[in-house]
Amino acid sequence: MRLMHGTTHAWTVRDTPIGPLLLAATGRGLVSVVFHADERTARRAVARLDAALPPGRPADAEAVLAGAAMEVDAYFREELRAFTTALDWSLVTGFTERALRELAASVPFGSVVGYGELAERVGEPDAARAVGAAMGANPLPVVVPCHRVVAAGGEIGGFGGGLPTKRALLALEGVLPEPLF
């Protein structure tokens, strides 16, 4: 695994069945997962993290990053159903953080939850749209599984990584059949 360092974090890009994923970690935990991380996207993501995160020692993040990368690889090999890597929530606050923490804690591999139901779980029953916005702001997709949040009536809903990626993740977890093409 090739580790790179920003000014505040360590990062790497993993090849996965859904395309390259950038993983970034601080000494406190995994802080960012970025879809479609070609060279240009990765460079932009690292610059945003350098600007957003407080100063720290990137070397402290290497162990966290190595563990997170091993878990992501195992997930895509269908050998891991629950991530245990430490998470650094410093890129989210308020309702978004509450919704994402609830999602991570209560919606296991192979299951889905509706936007409205997740809103109820965080104590805001009328906040289904806010849950959608929180999922769109998720800095830790795949690990904090916003792909498991679906619209009412069985619709798949939106997804920051694109609907083909959401379908592929749900298929990997057995929720949807494998895409035909």
Rank of each mutant, 00 (worst) to 15 (best):
G162V: 07
G27F: 07
L30N: 03
F109K: 00
P17G: 13
R28Y: 08
A168C: 02
R48W: 12
R2Y: 00
V143C: 08
R101H: 11
W11L: 04
A37M: 03
L180W: 11
S106I: 05
A25Y: 06
P54D: 12
T93R: 13
M4S: 15
G56V: 08
P125Y: 07
K166A: 09
P139R: 00
R167G: 08
T7G: 11
A99W: 07
Y115R: 04
G136V: 05
V122F: 06
V92F: 07
V72H: 07
S111A: 13
D38W: 01
L65T: 04
H9C: 14
P125W: 04
L21C: 05
G174F: 04
V46D: 08
A99R: 02
T7M: 06
L100R: 01
Y115F: 14
A130I: 00
S106Q: 12
L170H: 04
S90W: 00
E155D: 12
P164H: 05
R44Y: 14
A24K: 02
Y75H: 08
A82L: 13
A47W: 01
V150S: 01
T85G: 12
V31M: 02
G157S: 06
H36W: 09
R101M: 13
H36E: 15
G161M: 03
R48N: 14
C146K: 00
A86R: 15
G136A: 15
R98L: 15
E97N: 02
R148E: 11
T41M: 10
V107E: 09
C146V: 13
G6C: 05
A127Q: 06
A82M: 10
L87S: 01
T7L: 13
L176T: 07
V64H: 03
H147D: 11
G153Q: 10
D126K: 03
R44F: 13
P145Y: 08
D50W: 04
E173M: 07
H147I: 09
T12V: 11
G174W: 02
G157A: 04
K166C: 10
E117A: 14
V107A: 05
C146M: 00
V33H: 01
E102V: 09
M135A: 15
G153M: 06
T165V: 15
V150N: 01
R48T: 12
P55C: 10
E124C: 06
H147V: 09
F76Q: 11
L30I: 03
L140K: 01
R129L: 14
V13C: 07
F95H: 08
H36R: 14
G162I: 10
L65P: 04
L80E: 07
S32L: 12
P179A: 13
S111F: 05
